[in-house]
Design a protein around this nucleic acid. Sequence first.
DNA 1: ATGATATAACACCTTTTGGTTTTATGTAAA
DNA 2: TTTACATAAAACCAAAAGGTGTTATATCAT
Lengths: 123, 123
Amino acid sequence: MSASAEKVDVFQAIADPTRREVLRLLAEKELPISAITSHFPISRTAVVKHLHILADADLVTGHKVGREKIYRLHPGPLTEVKQWLSFYEQFWNNKLSMLKHLVETDGDTALTIVQSEPDQTRK
Amino acid sequence: MSASAEKVDVFQAIADPTRREVLRLLAEKELPISAITSHFPISRTAVVKHLHILADADLVTGHKVGREKIYRLHPGPLTEVKQWLSFYEQFWNNKLSMLKHLVETDGDTALTIVQSEPDQTRK
DNA sequence: ATGATATAACACCTTTTGGTTTTATGTAAA
DNA sequence: TTTACATAAAACCAAAAGGTGTTATATCAT
């Protein structure tokens, strides 16, 4: 519920490389707009727009100190991304990923496991 | 190195809700374009564009079988997102996050811990 | 061969995005 | 009280995003 309160999706907020870089900067320490701007080749106005988007996604918060507006990282919403990702981790954590997921979620799957006899041709 | 080979950033690829839904569908099983389209209220052409973006981000692969083009999930590039996220996990895993990160990464930080004298005005 | 199906390739449209410059406002310092 | 600084707000712009419809091509089934 900042100035705009327009609810930006966190996935969209982190889609832009400049905004990700802003988050990285703020991870080190909170910074006023001018300090953030000095790290980029773009105008202050453009940086402010990015900050508003990040604020609307609740990824940063800003508070005024004197004539400066200090922005601070607020990483909470990133948990949504983490949760989303966790669903896909099963697909690279083991080779049987697809099959495993099918078995676990689709009760109607008729899955026949063919148990091979021990190889008696050897020895 | 698909048809377009235009290298789409994975963060941008997953920014769109429709594309995330496509990934979720393909997580269950590989599907032809028509089957994917039937899950959305948008045109086939629009779906194909989303698939191309996902393919350019290497998140899906497509192969032709007869007259159908079958798309399959290829979750590998999501590790990039996971790595990016892991950097920020420290910020919600413990309360001292900001300070801890500063101490660990900035060797030049002159951090003075002011040890207060026991309060002798009391008692 | 013919017709239905599945995709591909275009051309086009509207809204959003990421950027600019300009103008105004509040605060600190001389 | 000027002057400089830091931000805010507004108008504007080009390009990209997300969508549409049309047309063409390849394949499967009759």
